[in-house]
């Protein structure tokens, strides 16, 4: 089924490298992908949700990992946001999904980050979320946003 919101959406892949403590990559990548999605005429609500997922996921990599990458795939039916990192992994994913639970250091919190809202925000904004993590190796996060599905 097609509707007006993505009638011109081609297949697009956008990729960003994320270095440790490169906190600006979150806003930079979210802002650039937002512009691309706006040019494609994608609905405002979907752009906002995608931007939040990108921002939070990239910020998680910058805060916790050694390095990683953010990839965004835009297809006619779905936007996929994927982060892959080399880092400590998430010890307890269930706990990390709880609002307010954070392992971010104090200096990060003073900047306004690390409030324990990152993963809950990502979950709230995505239609599907898969987190694959190995302690001492790293984490892969895959979030999907469907272009023609009503989000709760």
């Amino acid at each position: 089924m097609l509707n007006n919101s993505f009638r011109f959406t081609p297949h697009i892949t956008l990729e960003f490298k994320i270095e440790e403590k490169d906190f600006f990559i979150a806003s930079e990548s979210a802002s650039r992908i937002k512009k691309t999605l706006q040019q494609l005429g994608i609905k405002q609500d979907i752009i906002k949700r995608t931007a939040i997922i990108i921002y939070e996921a990239a910020m998680n990599v910058a805060i916790h990992a050694i390095h990683g990458a953010l990839k965004v795939y835009v297809d006619p039916e779905v936007i996929s946001v994927v982060t892959e990192d080399v880092g400590p992994g998430i010890e307890n994913v269930e706990l990390a999904m709880k609002e307010g639970y954070s392992t971010a250091p104090q200096e990060i919190r003073e900047m306004g980050f690390g409030a324990g809202m990152g993963l809950p925000n990502i979950k709230q904004c995505s239609d599907e979320l898969v987190i694959d993590t190995k302690i001492g190796e790293g984490t892969t996060l895959k979030a999907k946003i469907y272009l023609n599905k009503n989000h709760e």
């Binding site: 906002k48 931007a51 306004g112 980050f113 409030a115 809202m117 709230q124």
Partner: peptide, 12 residues
């Protein structure tokens, strides 16, 4: 607010 995550969710 003073939390970036909250700004993302609530600022339009």
């Amino acid at each position: 607010c003073d939390m970036v995550s909250e700004m993302l969710l609530h600022v339009q």
